[in-house]
Structures are given as C-alpha cells and as structure tokens.
Design a protein around this nucleic acid. Structure first.
Lengths: 124, 124
DNA sequence: CTAAACGTGTACTATGTGGTACATAGTATA
DNA sequence: TATACTATGTACCACATAGTACACGTTTAG
C-alpha cells in the first residue's frame, strides 16, 4: 500500500516542480491561476501538489499535462493510471493485445522501439 | 452512458450462459455454489448475471474466469476493465507502450499475430 | 411428500473518489 | 500601511464501487 502514497507524492512533487519553473517567468502559473484554467479549486490543486490527496481525474491530468508541456501518458502513469483510449484498444481485442504486451513486457527499450519503427514504416 | 449498461448485461448474460451450460452436467455450478466458491453472496451473483448490478471486482472476475474455463482478459474486457498487470506494464514505460499500442491500434489481427510470433520465436 | 437446495427481491452499508467552500495566514507592492 | 494577491488548513459532500444480510416463494431429489 505504501507505494501508492509514494506515487502520489511523486506525482504532486513533479507537478509542483514543473509549475514553479514555469512560474518564474510567467505569473499565470500560480496555483490559483493554473487551478482556474484546469477548472478546480486552488486549495485542491495545492493539496494534490503536496501529495495530501490523490491525483485528479484523467481529464484533469490531461489538461495539466498540456499546461505543463508534459507527456500525458507519463503524467497519467505517475498518477497510477493508464489513458482510457489505450485501455479501449486493449478491451476491443483483449486476447491479442494481452498476449502482445505480456510478450514484450521484459524486452529492452531499444528492441521495442525498433519494432515500433518497423511497424510505422509499413514493413508489416 | 447506455453502452455501459449494454456492456454490463453482455457480461452478465455471458456468465449466466456459461454457468448454465456447465450446470447441466454438474450441480456444483448452481448460483449458490458458484457464489460460495467465488466468495460472494448468491443474491449478488444473481444480480450480476441479470445485469442488474455492475460486474464485480477484477479479483472476482479472474476467479470467475477460472471457474468457467474462460480467458480472464476477455471476461475483464466484457466488464469494461483491463487487467491490472497489463496496466502495470504500460505504467512502467508509458511513452514506449503508449506509442506501440497506438501504432498497432488499427492493424489487422493477422499482422499483429505475426508480430507476436516473431517476438516469441526470438527473432528480436 | 417433504426437506434441502434453489434463485431472487429488498434493504442496507463501508470505503473510496473527486472534488467544493470558506477561513486563515503569509508576502509583495504601491 | 493598506490592499491585494498568494498558499494552505479544515470541514464537508455527492456519487460510485463492491458488495452483505436475510426473507421469500419455487424447484428438485431422495
């Protein structure tokens, strides 16, 4: 159970760090103003950043990623989530993608990347 | 929102069908006895099968799949879920697997299967 | 024929999720 | 020194999830 708390504060700390960096050059990145753009209360964003509460919903995390110029999948992963559109791909062909992902689970980064490139380049 | 109800009853109907098939030859597959093996109340399993309530938790669905000799990933997909171990694989390398899955999303079955085989046969 | 086993209806509940609302206290600025 | 903005602490809440408990009438097997 502790690793969830760990993830939570990791997520919050990361968001805080990115926001404060941006804030140094742009006052639109105060807790209040960012919260407003996300459509949440400032106190809530503050709690999230301090890891006092769990990360927000997927929709808010995606908005947050856009504001902070970060990869939504990465931010979602830090929050212990997987993007619902990826989940949908798996749900549509569960045997196929289940098998594939389990097969690739422990493959080194470069091998999977090569695979991605080959597929993208239409060699399949 | 309706498609959730649709999924729900699809899941329930499927479970009921499989259970009743097995029951014809084995009285251990009554609602009561199966529920007992799953560790839930019979009335709950009954409601799930009739689509009157949402599908159970991931853990119960996996047990159910074993009892019914069905693929857990398929049953989970019917319940609108993705196995948490697959999610964990994605969460550990979100950019990599995000990219891969989106790339393969619309690929025909046989192409992906070929990929799986090639990987499994160690050609990577 | 009857007792055990069966499926289901109704009512209830603990825990988690995803926040809001408002009060308080510090900080910068003019 | 006022005032205006900032972050944070405290209290609360609606809805979802994942079920339990038990009574009821029905079916079935010995």
């Amino acid at each position: 159970m502790w690793y969830i708390v760990y993830n939570m504060s990791q997520f919050g700390a990361f968001v805080r760090d990115r926001r404060e960096r941006l804030r140094r050059e742009d006052s639109r990145f105060s807790v209040r103003q960012l919260a407003r753009r996300l459509g949440v209360e400032p106190s809530y964003l503050s709690k999230v950043e301090r890891g006092e509460t769990a990360p927000p919903s997927e929709a808010k995390i995606v908005l947050l990623a856009k504001e902070l110029n970060e990869d939504p999948d990465v931010l979602l992963a830090m929050a212990g989530k997987v993007s619902s559109d990826l989940q949908e791909v798996i749900r549509k062909r569960p045997e196929l993608f289940g098998q594939l992902i389990r097969e690739l689970k422990d493959m080194p980064e470069h091998a999977v990347l090569r695979l991605v490139r080959e597929v993208r380049d239409g060699r399949w």
